[in-house]
Simulated scan of single mutants.
Amino acid sequence: MSKPHLEPSEWYASVPTVYTSACMLLTDEHDRVLLVKPNYRPYWAIPGGVVEADEAPHECVAREITEELGLTVPVGELLVVDWAPPFEQRPRTMVNFLFDGGTLTNPNRIRLQVEELDAAEFFTWEDAAARMPANTATRIPAARRARKNARTVYLPADSAV
């Protein structure tokens, strides 16, 4: 005998949920990566943030870049999709979308959102990865590979780039 089907509202309430974030890879004319230093974390990060309710990842990253850096940057190709299991105080899985923002030819246009950020600086690809926590640092070489190969990279939590 088969199980009775749940009503859609009951079924959706039983499905696991994830957090979603989006960030943007911006480089300068010397092929260095832009990172930001949030004032609420001890490490550097790729600019971006958490996707709000009913917001698409590409819309989120455009909003976050405007809010955090005062820039209006066209959202380019999807470079990396990163799946990360629960970590430290985050109780759910995080799925991150990393979009290409291209080359920022005039870094003087950056207007830092001081309520959330202490700094924004360009680093070599290697130094950028070294300044990030291990659970997100793999996004940097993956994004570089994605740009080079014009192909999105998927990063499951146990992947090595």
Rank of each mutant, 00 (worst) to 15 (best):
M1E: 15
S2L: 08
H5N: 15
E7Y: 15
E7N: 15
S9A: 15
E10A: 15
W11V: 15
Y12S: 13
A13Q: 15
A13D: 14
A13M: 13
S14F: 05
V15D: 00
T17C: 08
V18E: 14
V18W: 00
Y19K: 13
T20C: 09
A22P: 07
L25G: 03
L26S: 08
E29K: 09
R32Y: 09
R32D: 09
L34P: 01
L35F: 01
L35H: 02
V36I: 12
K37W: 00
R41Y: 11
P42H: 11
W44M: 06
A45K: 01
A45G: 05
A45Q: 05
P47D: 01
E52D: 07
D54C: 04
P57W: 03
C60E: 03
A62P: 02
R63D: 05
E64G: 01
I65M: 04
I65S: 03
E67R: 08
E67G: 01
E67P: 02
E68F: 03
L71N: 03
V73Q: 00
V73F: 06
P74W: 05
V75M: 02
V80E: 04
V81L: 11
V81I: 14
V81A: 07
D82Y: 06
W83Y: 13
W83L: 07
W83V: 11
W83Q: 11
W83F: 12
P86L: 10
P86W: 08
F87T: 09
F87M: 08
Q89M: 10
R92T: 10
V95W: 00
F99P: 01
D100H: 07
G101I: 04
G101Y: 03
G101S: 07
G101R: 07
P107N: 03
N108W: 02
R109V: 12
R109A: 15
R111M: 10
R111S: 09
E115N: 12
E115R: 12
E116H: 00
E116K: 00
E116A: 11
D118G: 13
D118Q: 14
A120H: 11
A120V: 12
E121L: 08
F122E: 06
F123L: 06
W125G: 05
D127H: 13
A128D: 05
R131G: 08
R131P: 01
M132W: 10
M132K: 09
A134H: 14
A134T: 13
N135Q: 10
T136C: 00
T136V: 13
A137M: 04
T138N: 13
R139A: 03
P141W: 03
A143R: 05
R144N: 06
A146Q: 09
A146L: 09
N149W: 08
R151C: 12
V153C: 02
S159P: 00
S159M: 04
A160Y: 10
V161W: 01
